[in-house]
Amino acid sequence: MLAIYAPGTVYREFLWTTTPPKVKRYIILAENTDSILIALINSAININYLGTQELRNLQLKLSADGRSYLDHDSYLNCSQVYEITKVSLLTRLKADRNMYIGTMNRADLERATHLVVSAGTINAKIKRSYALVSVKIPESR
């Protein structure tokens, strides 16, 4: 059975929230009790939107090779995340069972998570609510 809220799960659906509204692919990064945290996959880095080097550094390049959920090389935007309630995702999945298109491999998910944790563009409260916080390991004396 598909773990629909599992981190690394990749979905494709029409999103009205993008400009312009269109079919987008996204990856679940984390979940909490009620919601999931997602990041969008883009075909290219939009320099107009991602004008600073800091924002461009938060784009995870994903080669299409070995990633069945991609049709071409793409970028996971780790500078901005979105929350979706689990109820909302389940309702949408019931309406369109073809939304699920694959699972991100562990190494990619770890790199994406690291970028989100390090992103100064993402509110710390959101990171904490999904347990996406960096842990400082004390140096030995």
Rank of each mutant, 00 (worst) to 15 (best):
Y69T: 06
G120V: 10
T91N: 11
E139M: 12
N77P: 03
H72V: 13
L132R: 05
V10A: 03
L70C: 02
Q80Y: 04
R25K: 05
I41H: 01
D73W: 08
Y49W: 08
T18W: 02
D73F: 06
S68P: 00
V117L: 01
D65H: 08
T19M: 04
I84P: 02
A44T: 15
L58M: 08
Y130N: 11
S68M: 01
R111K: 13
Q80G: 04
A6M: 10
M1Q: 12
D65F: 07
N32K: 04
L93A: 01
K24P: 00
L55P: 04
K125A: 15
A112Y: 01
L29D: 01
D96W: 07
A39L: 04
D96V: 12
I27M: 02
L109V: 14
T33V: 11
G120R: 07
G51S: 12
N48C: 13
V87I: 12
P138I: 09
I84W: 09
A6I: 14
S88N: 12
R97I: 15
P7T: 07
R97H: 15
H114L: 13
K24I: 02
L70M: 00
E83G: 04
G8A: 12
M104A: 10
T121I: 03
K125P: 03
G120T: 12
A124V: 14
Y49K: 13
L115E: 05
N123G: 04
R67L: 12
A124L: 12
E54V: 14
A124F: 09
A112N: 00
S63L: 15
N48S: 14
T103P: 01
H114T: 15
Y5P: 06
W16H: 08
D71F: 12
T121W: 00
M99T: 07
D34M: 08
M1V: 15
K127Q: 03
R12S: 13
S140W: 13
